[in-house]
Design a protein around this nucleic acid. Structure first.
Length: 959
DNA sequence: GCAATCACG
DNA sequence: GACGTACGTGATTGCA
């Protein structure tokens, strides 16, 4: 590599100025910045930024030191791409001993690149290669082009580069490292460093080397024999027996070690050296970045001491523009540009795809969207993948399309596709590259689909969740709605390309031109949305909410959904049959009783029968004027409360029929259809952004409303089972919402009762009605329980009266008594309502905002509704936040402890697991620990969070 | 596509 | 004094 025979003789460019290239080992800088500084976080949202700050200070120092007459003409900062490199293919143990970077450093990696660009310097990296390889390649190329090169790094691996044109500079000591210093370090000149390292090995990078041979021996051998090949060839001549034997025995290992330490000088070049021309930072970009990072003192310091006036004669030469807006910086770039659907590319050849892969590596933030043949992420087959790297810069890669006649693509070029496995092989490194942020809209879907094709997408952002955090409660968070809202653009409707209803066709039959426009536009929209929403997170100080309550959820939920829960279809079929038989019998009896047939499923016909024909008194109307026939009404009739006793039999029959119909239609029949015929597992989908409070919602099928309250209903739970050799574990938070009420409202009596492990409803009853605990009756306790729940829902006398079947006056007196006994609750309610009126939103303990715009509505009813929602939202929402945190931590904790237990379901305050029988006893305490401590360290709840857990063969017994 | 009903926390 | 009411969801059915 130090062969410079082809180099031009001159080392000066046309201006006569010396051409000098400075290459900075950026990754080394990051770690030094991180370890050299106390952990610093951004004030507004707690984003860790210590390393970024230290890095910026180093850049300032660097720029100061490299100005004036002896300034370099070119400069670049080189980073590790972080993913696996070709060295892992040579030796899978390479760097295997390296611990993963600290958790609070990870989010800073992309920020450091942003910092570099903000300072007007190129940030260069390349997947598959280490920074050292790129430095080596650039140094080599630069020398060929007549440059002198300075490498700023303290990495001894780079010493192999040193020659008369290439010098190293130690950034810590500030001293040059030339040939002499290399010899001092290794005992051999730079050209023998590789050979020496091959013998010495490196315990940090896990390079094996030759056992028992260190720096001294290696140098001695190499000096004696000339180079490593000679040492190995003539190993037999070595007098020391042990050393001789080592060199013979470990010859292959030594040669492999040499390949590991030898830097590549022939990597692809992400950017030409000409683009590294040193220029001054653009003041507004730098200022915007520093402001976003909240580095105020640094910004002041730079404004003064580091004058941003021209520092080099070459400052005016334009360089490549910053490829993307800076993190957290509001930008004019991009999002308002008109959409150009014809600019999208349909990627049909390997060469095209390789170009896009390189584009992604450069962009560092890309949008990804998958197109499939099914809405269910756990079953859908991939039709294609779209990518966007910049505004109006997007592509679609068709992978599973068929000609509209259903035949495979074979013929003309317009129907050509890259074979699926080849495309996956090229895309996987990008989608898994730690330094390329993948942005998705509802990315849980894409995680699940791609996981089934062997790709673990990471890291990722989700624009749907960003919107949910920033504007939850104000509107929906689907892509079309967000695009309309933030970009003023209506994306091509899905039904326009795939049809709807009877004309609906699978996406794989959509012609590639239309498919490309539709799919690539989605990726383009998603990336633009990211540019709008990411800064909003920072501006509205919601980044921590996003990072701690949302960011990890797509991965956790994707895993759960892919796991699925096993059911026994036979149990469900038997229940269906049982319910069906009984329904038929009831139907016959009801028809006979009335003397004519009618539709038992029709509330309207039922209302006519009871209130028009039989003329029962006390009929109530629903909102739309129909007769109400819900359970309450039917129960009243069945109990003869209308005083006439008429209709009792019919009402009882209908109550039974309704229950059977519900259980059969919604559960036993439907669930069998959802079970995978092979695995007998049901894969629900959890939605992350559909509730106002932060709760999840489950659909297709909804597994969060499986019956439990009646004996007949509970039978359905016995069909939910564990696979052979396993148990189901149900772990639920006991009374979490009441505990949170006690904490949030700061109610001493409630807090004490929970701390003492008392029966909270009995305690409430005792306090309210003055009944000693010893004399508590179940009826009094029942009333107190209803009041406790009513409080959580924003109680009203009417509602409580309804619930307890008492008159409104009495209910109102209960509430009054409650507020007198627990004045803290009244204070909480009043304060919450006032906060809502002032701000239009309320917040959970974790800082999640819940907008309730109805508070500004016209009617008193609407406002009253908004106030009740406001009272409930912080309680329900905090509980939701807590279980989210538990869920995001759970699988990593289980894995780390060596368990194979898997999380399957969440039901608001309960988590369901499938655990091998042998793990059950040990895993339950771990599950409880994770759940009970889930609020920490963000919030210390002043009441213990108790988690009850139980294992059994089915969900009924486990709960 | 809406209203009514009812399953869950 | 009137408003109408417990908070948050999803699936099914009938009916316009």
């Amino acid at each position: 590599m130090d062969d410079t025979s082809n180099a031009p003789e001159t080392t000066a460019d046309a201006t006569g100025k010396a051409k000098r290239l400075v290459l900075i080992d950026g990754s080394g800088y990051i770690f030094r910045a991180y370890h050299g500084l106390p952990p610093l976080t951004r004030k507004s949202d707690g984003l860790p930024v210590g390393a970024v700050s230290g890095f910026c200070n180093m850049l300032v120092k660097l720029i100061k030191e490299n100005r004036g007459d002896d300034a370099p003409s070119h400069l670049a900062v080189i980073f590790d791409a972080g993913s696996k490199t070709f060295r892992n293919d040579l030796y899978d143990g390479y760097k295997a001993n390296r611990p993963p970077p600290p958790e609070d450093l990870i989010p800073q990696f992309p920020l450091v690149r942003d910092a570099t660009r903000a300072f007007g310097l190129p940030a260069i990296e390349l997947a598959g290669f280490e920074a050292d390889d790129l430095i080596c390649t650039y140094a080599h190329l630069a020398v060929q082009q007549g440059f002198e090169v300075t490498v700023i790094s303290s990495d001894k691996d780079l010493m192999q580069l040193v020659n008369d044109k290439v010098t190293m500079m130690d950034p810590v000591k500030g001293t040059p490292v030339g040939r002499e210093q290399v010899i001092e370090k290794f005992g051999v000149p730079p050209e023998l460093v590789v050979d020496a390292q091959a013998l010495i090995g490196d315990s940090v990078d896990n390079v094996p080397g030759a056992p028992g041979i260190g720096v001294k021996t290696a140098a001695q051998l190499l000096i004696e024999y000339g180079d490593l090949d000679s040492v190995l060839a003539r190993a037999g001549e070595i007098k020391q027996e042990k050393r001789r034997q080592t060199l013979i025995d470990f010859k292959d290992q030594i040669l492999m070690s040499r390949e590991l330490v030898r830097l590549r000088c022939d990597t692809p070049v992400p950017a030409e050296i000409a683009t590294f021309v040193l220029k001054q930072p653009e003041a507004d970009i730098l200022a915007a970045f520093l402001a976003a990072m909240e580095f105020n003192s640094l910004a002041r310091r730079i404004g003064g001491s580091l004058s941003l006036e021209s520092t080099t004669a070459l400052a005016q030469i334009p360089t490549a523009p910053i490829s993307r807006p800076l993190y957290g910086v509001k930008t004019e770039l991009g999002e308002k540009q008109p959409f150009d659907l014809d600019a999208y590319e349909c990627v049909q050849t390997i060469e095209q795809l390789q170009t896009w892969v390189r584009r992604c590596e450069q962009a560092q933030v890309i949008a990804v969207d998958t197109e499939t043949d099914d809405l269910s992420a756990t079953h859908a087959k991939l039709c294609g993948i779209s990518l966007s790297t910049d505004t109006n810069c997007a592509c679609y890669i068709p992978l599973g399309h068929l000609a509209s006649d259903g035949l495979d693509f074979g013929g003309g070029d317009d129907l050509k596709q890259i074979p699926l496995d080849q495309a996956i092989a090229l895309l996987k490194p990008v989608l898994e590259n730690r330094n390329i942020l993948k942005v998705g809209q509802n990315i849980k879907y894409d995680l699940s689909v791609l996981k089934r094709y062997g790709i673990d997408v990471a890291p990722y952002d989700d624009t749907m969740l960003m919107s949910y955090v920033v504007e939850g409660g104000l509107h929906g968070h689907g892509m079309d709605e967000l695009s309309q809202l933030h970009l003023g653009h209506t994306p091509i409707p899905f039904k326009q390309v795939a049809g709807s209803g009877k004309t609906l066709k699978s996406f794989k039959f959509v012609a590639l031109k239309e498919a490309t426009q539709y799919a690539a536009e989605d990726a383009d929209v998603t990336l633009r949305l990211w540019h709008v929403l990411k800064p909003r997170l920072v501006r509205d100080r919601l980044n921590t909410v996003y990072e701690t309550l949302e960011r990890g959820m797509p991965k956790a939920l994707s895993e759960m959904e892919l796991n699925g829960i096993r059911v026994d279809p036979q149990v469900l079929r038997n229940l269906s049959q049982d319910f069906g038989t009984r329904m038929n019998a009831i139907e016959q009896e009801a028809h006979a009783h009335l003397g004519r047939p009618f539709n038992l499923n029709s509330p309207q016909q039922l209302g006519v029968v009871f209130f028009d024909e039989m003329k029962l008194p006390g009929g109530k109307r629903t909102a739309s004027g129909q007769w109400a026939t819900d359970v309450k009404v039917l129960e009243d009739i069945a109990e003869g409360k209308n005083g006439t006793g008429a209709g009792q039999t019919l009402a009882k029959l209908l109550l039974d029929y309704r229950q059977m119909a519900k259980l059969k239609g919604t559960y036993t029949d439907a669930l069998v259809e959802y079970a995978d015929p092979q695995t007998q597992r049901i894969h629900t989908s959890f939605h992350l952004a559909s509730t106002t409070t932060g709760r999840l919602a489950s659909n297709e099928p909804n597994l969060q409303n499986i019956p439990i309250r009646t004996g007949e209903g509970r039978k359905i739970r016995t069909a939910f089972i564990a696979k052979p050799g396993c148990k189901l574990i149900s772990a639920d938070y006991s009374q979490i919402e009441l505990r949170l009420l006690a904490h949030i409202g700061d109610i001493e009596q409630l807090k004490k009762a929970f701390s003492d492990g008392q029966d909270i409803h009995a305690m409430t009853a005792s306090e309210m009605f003055g009944v000693p605990m010893a004399d508590m009756t179940s009826e009094i306790r029942r009333r107190a329980k209803a009041i406790n729940f009513g409080i959580i829902y924003g109680i009203s006398g009417f509602g409580l009266a309804n619930q307890l079947g008492i008159d409104q006056g009495e209910a109102s007196r209960y509430i009054k008594t409650y507020f007198e006994r627990f004045p803290g609750i009244k204070d909480y309610m009043d304060a919450t309502k006032q906060f809502l009126r002032d701000n239009g939103f309320v917040q959970t303990l974790m800082g999640r905002k819940i907008h309730i715009p109805e508070i500004n509505g016209k009617g008193g009813a609407i406002k009253a509704f908004a106030e009740r929602a406001a009272i409930n939202a912080p309680i329900q929402g905090t509980a939701a936040d807590i279980i989210r945190r538990a869920m995001m931590r759970m699988q990593p904790r289980l894995d780390a402890a060596g368990f194979t237990t898997r999380m399957l379901l969440q039901v608001h305050d309960e988590l369901i697991f499938e655990a091998p029988e042998a793990e059950v006893a040990a895993v339950i305490p771990l599950i409880q620990e994770v759940m009970q401590n889930a609020a920490l360290p963000a919030v210390q709840i002043s009441v213990p969070l108790v988690v009850e857990a139980k294992a059994a063969n089915n969900w009924d017994e486990a709960h």
